[in-house]
Design a protein around this nucleic acid. Structure first.
Lengths: 366, 366
DNA sequence: ACTCCCAGTTAATACGTATTAGCAAGTGCC
DNA sequence: GGCACTTGCTAATACGTATTAACTGGGAGT
């Protein structure tokens, strides 16, 4: 009945002492499990009573130490999370990861420190800051980010550290596990939709960098055209160095010069592209979809209620994140796991920026 | 150059072996600290090199078991985070905690596992669920939540575990550290504002439970009245068992029967109260502020663009969270820390539901 | 030459738990 | 009564780290 001693939590040894048994017995009773069957009923009850009286709570650290696992999953983001436009991007992933992590009975470790000793703001984050792989304090890790450090991914693969990337990524040194959105099908689907509406000349405005998502979108674009019985015109694949270059003049040039009636745009990670689009909409000199249909190949980075409801497809971010956790746990449970690749479908958002071909639109031939 | 053995994390012993020193030396070098000064430079470099080659990362469990630090801060929420209306409440806190944690060079551990073995959804979360206290794995912890388990807080205090509560909380067994919003001043400020507009009879609709925030608001209400030279009429302090009971009829009864011209409402944690208010607004049978002024004593739990812009005060949640982290780190850095209590001011949101006293309003005498 | 000290290193130990091998007492069998 | 076998428990050990006391060789002091 004595209250638990202050300043020190009770241990199995305390219980053992009080119940007049050994620490091992206490462990057997507390942990329950199979081996506990061989404990006599009176003993078990005595132990449980003592534990109750002392307010016993097992020490997780000790337990994990013994088991080699910490029941911790990590979440690492290559970009810093704090710029406001990044938060909206990041949050659904975080929610998905957190929910599934919780469901699996793990806790979630957010690697938010810069790695750099203190204070100094850094744009580039690093896993291996300080010479060691910080991720290792978790049992495994979910990785996220658009600007990935390839060499760090390679190192992780070489180290055989269990991790899953959210998004398709590939490295030279071997295969890594990822959960990716199906950009190919989603893009092909948009092309099909446009073709159904009568569009024949569809410009694909791609990102200048050659990352996996961009490659997938381009593949989807070509596949969509092929499936619609349209030939691919290389002149209709464009990229802009600066999203601000997407001006009304340029667009009119494409419409008149190339005869396009629709535009597929790959959104940038920042607000600049959608900003440029908003500017164009504001000028009234070009209207979507009256003058030209437009669809986004993904989510605009931040979404405010007053922003326009572009036709697009949307990544099921929370779902992807959840799948990533599930895959990661599979990896952890296996002896010698093979890399896993999972693809989840995107969601089509009808929006209001796609319509039929404008009356005079479309160049006859070509 | 040999790669680390598959699926087994390298330990200090591995490093020791490779560098030809003892495990103790490795620990001294790795932990850095004061005692590491006495290690000869060549030795230190050999150890660090070996650690690098083996991809060493300290084992969190072992370190916390030993009582060491992991540069990990925990974040624990008493309510589950996933119901959508909870997310909006939770997210600003999370952001604040994460940002400040990062700035301090710590990583953030989200205690999201239910504690219950798996899968089963539970409304009540518990720190000690499953007979363990998971928090210990972090160096210290920020706690959050409206439905607090007092006995668990007490246990934490007794255990002398470093933690900071976001929100004013008190327990019998001793003092705990918290960072709280200044409900007293904020409520008094609203009363002052109403008094300035000529309101003399202001009803305070409080939550039925007697939690700290409610007590503080009531104190602020009384103080505000006193400072405005108004006496407190106990009949003007009401509570409703069910928020849905806040009907037009009841409100009209208060206006006509009690002669009130303004209403201070303590929002509930769920959407029911603001739902009731929205319903009232919709009926057109009572208009705010034409028939009666209304202000919320805090943020409505979820905020959608179409919801009304109630006059209210708002908690600086991210800031509170950041302060909590800062306080926690202070606690960690001290030898025998005294509990700290920090109060941050709320933000007045003018809104559109407060106005001057209606023409015929206000009972003359009373 | 003796002690004394000091820098540099290590052996030993503790943290709290899970697990395995093994011990003691009891039961049934021949 | 000796043997095998079961039941119920304990002793011992390992997990990986931090810390402290103890040890070593060598240089300085007397």
């Amino acid at each position: 009945m004595a209250p638990p001693e202050r300043r020190r939590r009770s241990t199995q040894r305390d219980i053992a002492q009080r119940a007049g048994v050994s620490q091992a017995t206490v462990s057997l009773v507390i942990s329950g499990g199979a081996a506990s069957a061989q404990i006599a009923e009176p003993t078990r009850r005595a132990v449980l009573a003592a534990a109750e009286e002392l307010g016993y709570a097992a020490n997780v650290a000790a337990r994990s130490l013994k088991g080699g696992r910490n029941r911790l999953l990590g979440l690492y983001t290559f970009e810093s999370v704090f710029p406001t436009d990044q938060r909206d991007f990041y949050y659904p992933f975080l929610l998905g990861v957190e929910e599934e992590t919780a469901r699996q009975g793990y806790d979630l470790l957010l690697f938010c420190s810069d790695g750099s000793a203190s204070g100094t703001a850094r744009a580039e984050r690093s896993i291996y800051a300080g010479g060691t792989n910080r991720l290792k304090i978790a049992d495994g890790c979910v990785l996220l980010g658009r600007n990935v450090r390839r060499e760090e991914l390679s190192a992780l693969v070489r180290e055989d550290f269990p991790f899953v990337f959210v998004g398709r990524r590939e490295v030279d040194d071997g295969e890594l596990s990822y959960v990716a959105a199906d950009y190919v099908s989603a893009t092909a689907g948009l092309v099909a939709e446009l073709a159904r509406l009568g569009h024949r000349r569809i410009l694909y405005l791609r990102a200048p960098e050659d990352s996996e998502p961009t490659r997938d979108r381009e593949e989807g674009y070509r596949r969509g055209l092929a499936e619609a019985g349209l030939g691919a015109d290389e002149a209709l694949i464009r990229s802009l160095a600066d999203p601000a270059d997407l001006t009304v003049e340029r667009l009119k040039g494409w419409i008149d010069g190339l005869g396009i009636t629709a535009l597929l745009v790959e959104p940038t990670e920042d607000d600049r592209l959608t900003g440029a689009l908003a500017t164009m909409t504001g000028t009234e000199r070009v209207r979507f979809p009256e003058d030209c249909s437009l669809a986004l190949l993904g989510d605009p980075p931040s979404w405010t209620p007053e922003s326009r409801n572009w036709t697009r497809f949307s990544l099921p971010r929370a779902q992807m994140a959840g799948e990533a956790v599930r895959v990661l746990i599979e990896l952890l449970d296996e002896e010698a796991p093979a890399p896993r690749h999972l693809t989840v479908p995107c969601v089509f958002v009808p929006g209001d920026s796609v319509g039929p071909v404008p009356a005079g639109g479309g160049r006859p031939g070509a």
